[in-house]
């Protein structure tokens, strides 16, 4: 009896040590679907503020984490607003101006996406935690009721991210990331993403309800994935400013 407990403990310790050696692998596995699969999705967002709540409906096409096209389908006043990211180029189309506008790359790092707590790069493709960061394994922790590996990620030099540090909690099983905390050495936590609900879309396991919080949790935005489909035919050449102009909501 005693012996089996000891064995069990040993076995547990060895898995931890095993994992501890591969935080990069853990992250690469967690990101595999998001970065590796081109997709089409329909999303709805709900931003909660002290004085109002704001609903936003989006259609989104993505290819790796460097190409994305987002079209706003609601509310009516913002319908037709579009964003395109093609690697380092960003463009926007505002229907009322009828013009495609090139956005400075710094927009990717700055501010919220259309008045929500999600950032531009959350939606238009954020840097790869596995490839663009260095990692430090911090053990396991239970987050949102799920056992997770806690990994501290520091951006490699030259990677355009606003955060000085990202702490990732990745499910010990196959659910992927459960919480990401984007932190700044100067002002603490900038943003937090929580995967609240997981589901299976087009045969792929993924978070279907996500919460973005800023200002220490005083402001939150809930994002629901309504539809998600694999789009293997998408490639980098598909994401052009002309596509931005033509794609209707």
């Amino acid at each position: 009896m005693n012996r089996s407990l000891l064995l069990g403990l040993l076995a547990f310790a060895s898995t931890v040590r095993l994992a501890a050696q591969n935080p990069t692998e853990i992250l690469a596995k967690a990101e595999k679907t998001a970065i590796g699969t081109s997709s089409y999705s329909e999303l709805s967002m709900k931003a909660t503020r002290a004085r109002y709540t704001r609903m936003l409906d989006l259609k989104s096409w993505t290819h790796t984490n460097k190409y994305a096209l987002i079209v706003v389908t609601g509310p009516e006043r913002d319908r037709g607003t579009r964003y395109l990211r093609a690697d380092k180029q960003m463009y926007s189309f505002v229907p009322r101006t009828g013009k495609v506008v090139k956005l400075p790359q710094s927009m990717l790092m700055a501010g919220g996406f259309m008045g929500t707590d999600a950032s531009m790069d959350n939606l238009l493709g954020q840097a790869s935690l596995a490839k663009d960061f260095t990692h430090q394994y911090l053990g396991t922790e239970t987050v949102n009721g799920l056992p997770c590996h806690k990994i501290k990620c520091k951006p490699k030099p030259g990677v355009p991210v606003a955060a000085d540090e990202v702490v990732a909690w990745v499910h010990t099983g196959d659910k992927g990331w459960v919480r990401l905390s984007f932190q700044s050495t100067r002002s603490g936590e900038l943003q937090r993403m929580d995967a609240l609900e997981f589901g299976r879309m087009d045969g792929v396991q993924m978070p279907v309800k996500l919460q973005f919080s800023t200002q220490g949790g005083k402001q939150t935005t809930l994002m629901t994935v309504k539809t998600w489909k694999k789009q293997p035919q998408l490639n980098a050449a598909w994401f052009t400013p002309e596509r931005l102009e033509q794609t209707q909501p």
Binding site: D78, S92, V94, P95, T97, G98, V101, G115
Partner: peptide, 16 residues
């Protein structure tokens, strides 16, 4: 010139 940004209570601001 084209101006765009965040408008009142999260709406999209855009105009030329």
């Amino acid at each position: 010139v084209v101006a765009m940004g965040q408008g009142f209570q999260g709406s999209m601001a855009g105009a030329s």
